[in-house]
Write a protein that binds this DNA or RNA. Structure first.
Length: 577
RNA sequence: GCGCUGGUAGUGUAGUGGUUAUCACUAUGGCUUGCCAAGCCAUAAACCCGGGUUCGAAUCCCGGCUAGCGCACCA
C-alpha cells in the first residue's frame, strides 16, 4: 500500500484540522486575529497527550519536577533577564515609501547607540535617509515583543506576559535548590503559555503570539558537564548540522553522540545527552526520523543569553521548522537575577576530598590602625583581612583603597601566622542546559506527518496515521447494522471500554464503511465491530486503521487488548495467530 | 509593516450591478443496508466587516480584518 503524493499539504492539513475539530483560528465570529489559534475538541486532547508523554519522559524518566509559575511577571524580572532591553526592536519608517527599518542598523556606521533618543539624534545630525528611496525617515519607535500590562488599579506597577517560561524557574532558584537539597545537577520543568507580540505572525500555529512551551531548566556544575547516564544514549545516531557545515555550504552529518562529543562537535556530554533525549521524544510521539535534524545556531542567531544552541528541526511542507531549541544558557540568567535582586544564586559544591590549603592568616593590629586611621580603622581592618598574599614579604607590595585614596600596606599593621586550612568545596553559579519545546508546532508537525492518502479499491482513502499513544479517539465502536439487537450489544461493549479508561466513540450512523473512513480521518487507530457472530459466541472484531485488517477476540478480554495495543505492549500483527 | 493574490453553507467550489445565490461532499432524521465513503426521501446550512457610488452592491470603489506567498521581522 503506497501513499499518494499530497499537493499543498499545509492547506490540506489545515482543511482537515478545521473540519474535524483539531484546530482553527481563534474568535472567528469577530474576525480572527493573526497569531491566535484554538485547539478544538480533538486537537486539545492530542496536545494534552503529547504534553503528558513529555511529562513522562522528563518528570518520571529524568526526575525533573514540574512547577507552575504565573504568566505575568513584574518588570524587574525582565529587566534582569535582559528581555526588556534585548527583546526590543528600534524601528523607523520611511515617510515616503513606507519601508520599515531597524533603526540601530541604519546608524551603525556613524555611532553605536542603542537607546531610542540616541539613535533618533544620530539620524537627525547625520541626515540619514531611507536606503531604499532616499526619503525622509519618521520617528524612531520602540517595539518590544513582550505584551505589557499594568498590575492593580493604580496602574503603577508594570507587568509583562512572559516570553518564555524559563524565567519563572530562574527566579525560584533559591527555593528549588533547597528542595533538591543543595546538590547539582538537578532539573525543573514547566509547561505553559508564553507570549510574543510578533510583528507578523504567519503559517497557522507555526508562529503564534500566544503559544505553549515545554521547557526544562537543568542546573549543572559549570566545571563538570559530564552526564552520569551518558552511556545510555552514547550510541544514538543524530543528524547534526553544525555551524561549520552551514558556513561552508555542506550537508548534515550523521554521527553517534559519543563520537560527536569526542570530536568536540557537541561541546559537552550534558548537551549531547539532551539532544538525544529530544530525538527520543520527537520520534516517540510520531515525528518521522528521516525529517529530523539538529542545526546549530550561528553566532548572530543566538539569543542574548545563549553560549551554544541547537535547534531540532523537522522538514514540513513549509520548509525546515524549529520544534525544539536546546541551549547552553551558561550562568547568564542566574547571575543576572543575583545582581538585580541582591540574592545569592550560588551553590556550595563539595570537593571529593577536602583540599588542604596553606596560607597566611592576617590579623590586623587595631592598636596601630586605630590611632592612624581613626574612624576609617574598622574598614581598613576589614580590607586587610581579605588580602591573600602567598608570602609574608609580598604583603608590603599590596595596596588597599581607603576613602578614595590608594595606600601601600605596611606589614607592621598586622600580625601574620601561617596556617593550613581545609577547604571542603567552593561556591559556584550553575550553568543551565535548556531544552525548550514548541508544543503547538509539534502537534502541527504530527498532523502533517500523519496525514496520508492512498488508493483502496479504486477509491481514495484519507487517513491520519497518528501513533496510537497520541490519538485523541482511541477506538471506534460500531454495530455492523443498526438492527437485530446489535446496537444494544455494541453499546454494552462501548461502556465497558469507557469504564476501563479508554476514550472511545460509539457510532451507528450510515454504513459500516462510512464509519471506518470517518474514524480513519480523525486518526482513531482501532475500531471494534459487533456483528451477528457476536450474538452467537460473544466475540467482536478489532480492525486496525493502517492495515485495515481485522482480527476476532472475545468481548471479555477486549479492554485489555485495546489498552495493550494503545501502549504498544501488544502488536496488532501478533494477534489472531 | 510594505507588496502581490484571495476571502461565497461545516468543507471544497460556481456565478452575477436587478426576484427565492450554483453544485458536490459533509451533517441531521427516515427508509434501505451482512464489513470498508453504495442507494432513495426529507431537512439544515453561506456572499469576511465597515464606509462610499447607485433606484438597487455579495458583485464596482475605498478602508479594515484575515489567509497564502515575497520582502522585512522571528530576543
Amino acid at each position: 500500500m503506497s501513499d499518494l503524493e499530497i499537493a499543498m499539504k499545509y492547506e490540506r492539513v489545515i482543511e482537515l484540522a478545521k473540519r474535524r475539530g483539531f484546530l482553527w483560528s481563534s474568535s472567528e465570529i469577530y474576525g480572527a486575529t493573526a497569531g491566535f489559534w484554538d485547539f478544538g475538541p480533538l486537537g486539545a486532547i492530542l496536545k494534552r497527550r503529547v504534553e503528558n508523554l513529555w511529562r513522562e519522559l522528563y518528570i518520571i524518566g529524568e526526575g525533573f519536577f514540574e512547577i507552575e509559575s504565573p504568566t505575568v511577571s513584574v518588570e524587574d524580572a525582565f529587566a534582569a533577564s535582559g528581555h526588556l532591553d534585548c527583546f526590543v526592536d528600534l524601528i523607523v519608517e520611511c515617510k515616503k515609501c513606507g519601508e520599515m527599518f531597524k533603526a540601530d542598523h541604519l546608524v551603525q556606521d556613524v555611532g553605536s547607540e542603542s537607546t531610542r533618543a540616541g539613535v533618533a539624534k544620530l539620524i537627525k545630525t547625520h541626515d540619514i535617509r531611507c536606503p531604499e528611496c532616499g526619503g525622509e525617515l519618521g520617528d524612531v519607535r520602540t517595539f518590544n515583543l513582550m505584551f505589557r500590562t499594568t498590575i492593580g488599579p493604580s496602574s503603577e506597577r508594570i507587568g509583562y506576559l512572559r516570553p518564555e517560561t524559563a524565567q519563572g524557574i530562574f527566579v525560584d532558584f533559591p527555593r528549588l535548590l533547597r528542595f533538591y537539597r543543595d546538590r547539582l545537577p538537578f532539573g525543573v520543568v514547566q509547561i505553559g503559555k508564553a507570549y510574543r507580540n510578533e510583528i507578523s505572525p504567519r503559517q497557522g500555529v507555526i508562529r503564534l503570539r500566544e503559544f505553549t512551551l515545554a521547557e526544562a531548566e537543568i542546573f549543572v556544575d559549570p566545571r563538570d558537564k559530564s552526564h552520569p547516564r551518558f552511556d545510555e544514549i552514547a550510541d544514538v545516531v543524530l543528524r547534526l548540522y553544525p555551524k561549520k557545515e552551514q558556513l561552508r555550504g555542506k550537508n548534515e552529518i550523521e554521527i553517534n553522540v559519543k563520537d560527536a562529543v569526542k570530536k568536540g562537535i557537541i561541546p559537552s556530554q550534558f548537551m549531547g545527552y539532551h539532544l538525544a533525549l529530544v530525538q527520543l521524544f520527537l520520534t516517540g510521539v510520531g515525528i518521522r526520523p528521516e525529517t529530523l535534524r539538529f542545526r546549530q545556531h550561528k553566532k548572530e542567531e543566538r539569543a542574548h543569553y545563549a553560549a551554544d544552541c541547537w535547534d531540532a528541526e523537522t522538514l514540513l511542507d513549509l520548509g525546515w521548522v524549529e520544534l525544539v531549541g536546546i541551549a547552553d544558557r551558561t550562568d547568564y540568567d542566574l547571575k543576572a537575577h543575583a545582581k538585580k535582586s541582591g540574592v545569592d544564586m550560588g551553590v556550595f559544591v563539595l570537593y571529593d576530598k577536602p583540599k588542604v590549603i596553606e596560607r597566611l592568616r592576617i590579623k590586623p593590629k587595631m592598636d596601630v590602625l586605630g590611632p592612624k586611621f581613626k574612624e576609617e580603622a574598622a574598614k581598613v581592618a576589614d580590607v586587610l583581612m581579605r588580602l591573600r598574599p602567598r608570602q609574608l614579604n609580598e604583603l608590603g607590595k599590596e595596596t588597599i583603597k581607603v576613602g578614595g585614596k590608594t595606600i601601600r600596606v605596611d606589614p607592621k599593621w598586622v600580625e601574620c601566622e601561617r596556617i593550613s586550612e581545609e577547604v571542603h568545596g567552593e561556591r559556584v553559579v550553575p550553568h543551565v542546559i535548556e531544552p525548550s519545546y514548541g508544543i503547538d508546532r509539534i502537534v502541527y508537525a504530527l498532523l502533517e506527518h500523519s496525514l496520508a492518502e492512498e488508493m483502496v479499491e479504486g477509491e481514495k482513502r484519507l487517513v491520519l496515521r497518528l501513533p496510537p499513544k497520541v490519538a485523541p479517539i482511541q477506538v471506534g465502536v460500531f454495530p455492523l447494522l443498526a438492527r437485530d439487537g446489535l446496537v444494544e450489544v455494541a453499546k454494552r461493549v462501548a461502556s465497558l471500554l469507557s469504564k476501563d479508561g479508554i476514550l472511545m466513540e460509539y457510532d451507528d450512523s450510515g454504513t459500516i464503511g462510512r464509519r471506518y473512513r470517518r474514524h480513519d480521518e480523525i486518526g482513531a487507530p482501532f475500531a471494534i465491530t459487533v456483528d451477528h457472530q457476536t450474538l452467537e459466541d460473544n466475540t467482536v472484531t478489532i480492525r486496525e486503521r493502517d492495515s485495515m485488517k481485522q482480527i476476532r477476540v472475545s468481548i471479555d478480554g477486549v479492554s485489555d487488548i485495546i489498552r495493550g495495543l494503545l501502549s504498544g505492549k501488544i502488536q496488532f500483527e501478533m494477534l489472531g495467530r
